[in-house]
């Protein structure tokens, strides 16, 4: 991270035992929209923001693995997201043929969503394996070439979407059980958003568990720090990194499915926006920190929804604002460490 004026600030605001002050400040900022809206609206927007944040997290978690951990700048991440969305769109069509989308029971709808997420993950991972083998492996450690070549891959993948599925926007049907809302004492919470929140938490838990508690996680973290030691210990680090890359883009594809159902539409360039969101999340959270990405996504999701309600035109800018504010206070991101 940049040196200079910023390094004059103490590292980490909680260092001098004033963590509670930070807590109050965060609480104040979080609750500040209440000045301009009533509590019910606030809760509705919060639920929406959390759901959006969880979808951001799923895109960003893949990027955290690939960019944060493996230090590969994969500009095709958004294209994987779009691929996942389109695979989801096609599969929804097939499940509709079974009658599990427009008229399904809760169980059928749940199965539909889970199967689609799994297939999207696999398709993403498969394309990822090919991409990593052929392209990425040649450019490890070279950011400029990574950007250029994955940008090219991204164009190819988006054009392929246009060939397979056409140029137009398509409407995505949400399975019946996840349409509509729960109405709890006038607070209207969209059902799909609850699904998104639950799934996001599960994805977060699984990634953390694998990285922190399993031998595979140890090997991955070790390989990021020093490939040579891991290799001379007896592990095929190339194969492991291929696996991490596949998992990362698979997560992007899963997030694509969720976003397609969240926005109820797909279009070929849909990956671009979410890629930049994900990039911001990873930077806010701190490179390579899954926990940081999780918090960062929630911050962006919430801020976006509050501001979109109060000042619709400022909604896109608020992300940049959150990012800038975070980096001013912590130049390495929320949970980032200085090298």
């Amino acid at each position: 991270m940049s040196k200079g004026v910023l390094t004059l600030k103490p590292k980490g605001i909680t260092a001098d035992g004033k963590g509670w002050l930070v807590g109050i400040a965060i609480g104040f900022v979080w609750l500040s929209p209440l000045f301009w809206m009533d509590a019910t609206t606030f809760i509705v927007l919060t639920a929406a923001g959390l759901a959006m944040g969880m979808i951001f997290f799923m895109v960003a978690s893949g990027l955290t693995l690939i960019f944060g951990l493996m230090d590969v700048l994969n500009m095709a991440h958004g294209a994987f997201f779009a691929w996942g969305a389109y695979v989801g769109f096609s599969l929804l069509g097939m499940f509709e043929w079974l009658g599990w989308v427009e008229t399904g029971t809760f169980l059928q709808c749940m199965t539909t969503v889970l199967v689609i997420l799994a297939v999207a993950f696999l398709v993403g991972a498969l394309i990822g394996a090919i991409l990593e083998r052929i392209i990425i492996r040649q450019v490890y450690g070279d950011h400029l070439r990574q950007i250029l070549i994955t940008m090219g891959a991204s164009f190819v993948m988006v054009e392929l979407i246009k060939i397979f599925w056409g140029l137009n926007d398509e409407v995505v049907a949400v399975p019946l059980a996840f349409r509509g809302s729960f109405d709890i004492m006038d607070v209207v919470v969209n059902r799909f958003r609850i699904l998104a929140i639950v799934l996001g938490i599960i994805v977060f838990g699984v990634i953390q568990m694998v990285l922190k508690r399993t031998k595979l996680g140890i090997i991955v973290r070790a390989g990021v720090e020093n490939r040579e030691i891991v290799e001379t210990t007896g592990y095929n680090i190339n194969r492991i990194f291929t696996g991490v890359f596949c998992a990362g883009v698979g997560l992007a594809a899963m997030a694509g499915v969720m976003m397609a159902m969240f926005k109820q539409e797909v279009h070929p360039a849909m990956g671009d926006d979410s890629f930049f969101f994900a990039l911001m999340v990873v930077i806010i959270g701190g490179m390579g920190s899954v926990g940081g990405s999780f918090l960062g996504s929630l911050m962006l999701g919430l801020a976006f929804n509050y501001v979109a309600f109060l000042l619709p035109k400022a909604a896109l800018g608020v992300n940049i604002l959150v990012m800038a504010a975070t980096l001013l206070i912590r130049p390495t991101g929320l949970f980032g460490h200085e090298e």
Partner: peptide, 19 residues
């Protein structure tokens, strides 16, 4: 290897499990 071939960000226990 030369120069303390260990993984600094891992705990001692994790270094051993890796091995």
């Amino acid at each position: 290897a030369e120069d303390r071939a260990i993984l600094y960000k891992l705990t001692v226990a994790e270094n051993f499990r890796l091995s």
